[in-house]
């Protein structure tokens, strides 16, 4: 008689499951790599940037790429590569709190609208529609003109205009889940509204929100860059991709490198987060898993 052992497949955690599916999707893997590179370089900026991003060296101004300055220098001799890396920090500093804030308020308002009485739903939807009726850039320009440009103003403006996007998604999902039989059963067992919302509805809306957030990050980063390009975002000398684009635009006939240096990270951010978001959507939605998501 021989011993036989039955080997059961190891159960993966939910995060492991997501990662497993992400790396099997070529676009998802590419997105993940790009996002990790951008986030990693931003977090490690003080250690990996070769120069102080605001240190001037006017005699070395407007240099092209060379061994000392991988992406050349700007009009006052600052190292462009270092400014690109530090610019990533500004992009994340804007994107993360903005998206997080929009998700928190969107969740709260969306769940109240979706679960609450009809009149409250109508009121909140009206609020969402009102906020959405302002074109983000115009709204941002108006606020900045009133209170002056700063990173916090940019975060506030983009967050406020993003809340309705998340709120509407949460509201729709909440209304759908509210009709489910298990919710009816819970209610009949005497479950409280906070319990239903916290234990049953919240986990079911987080997945789609994560996908939406991933897809929104490039938009927010682009908005920050746009406002900084117009001089309404970060204050000088803070490095920002938008500031690089602005300097590059002003000097485009002298050197193309500033505009290239400001443009590449924006393109990579858009591609990376879009790939990642689409792959995440495929993973989160079981109906799409393994079908390429299309």
């Amino acid at each position: 008689m021989t011993d036989t052992a039955i080997v059961l497949p190891r159960a993966r955690s939910e995060l492991g499951e997501i990662l497993y599916h992400l790396v099997r999707d070529p676009l998802g893997l590419a997105g993940l790599i790009i996002v990790v590179a951008i986030v990693g370089s931003a977090l490690l900026a003080p250690w990996i940037a070769p120069y102080d991003p605001v240190a001037m060296n006017i005699p070395d101004r407007l240099q092209g790429p060379n061994a000392a300055h991988l992406l050349g220098t700007d009009q006052i001799g600052r190292d462009t590569f270092s400014r690109v890396i530090w610019g990533g920090r500004v992009a994340l500093k804007v994107a993360l709190p903005t998206i997080a804030g929009a998700i928190v308020f969107g969740l709260l308002l969306g769940m109240i609208a979706g679960y609450g009485p009809k009149w409250l739903d109508s009121l909140i939807v009206l609020l969402f529609d009102t906020l959405r009726s302002f074109p983000t850039v115009m709204f941002a320009l108006a606020v900045v003109a009133l209170v002056g440009p700063s990173l916090n103003t940019v975060i506030f403006v983009i967050m406020v205009t993003s809340i309705p996007t998340y709120g509407r998604v949460v509201r729709t999902l909440t209304q759908s889940i509210k009709q489910s039989e298990f919710i009816t059963a819970e209610l009949s067992l005497g479950a409280t509204v906070p319990r239903i919302m916290g234990i049953h509805i919240l986990p079911n809306v987080l997945g789609p929100l994560a996908v939406l957030a991933a897809m929104d990050i490039p938009t927010v980063v682009g908005l920050e860059a746009g406002l900084s390009f117009l001089g309404m975002g970060v204050k000088p000398p803070t490095p920002s991709w938008g500031v690089l684009l602005s300097d590059g635009y002003a000097l485009i006939r002298n050197t193309p490198w500033l505009i290239i240096a400001g443009g590449i990270p924006l393109i990579l951010t858009t591609l990376g987060f879009t790939f990642l978001g689409e792959a995440l959507r495929d993973v989160v939605d079981p109906k799409l898993r393994g079908k390429g998501g299309k």
Partner: peptide
């Protein structure tokens, strides 16, 4: 102006003055 202001900002930093540039 933005470039000149950043140079002035660096100049003043050398004597311990923090200069905020308002566009």
């Amino acid at each position: 102006n933005v470039t000149a202001a950043q140079i002035i900002q660096a100049n003043l930093a050398a004597i311990g003055i923090t200069l905020e540039i308002k566009l």
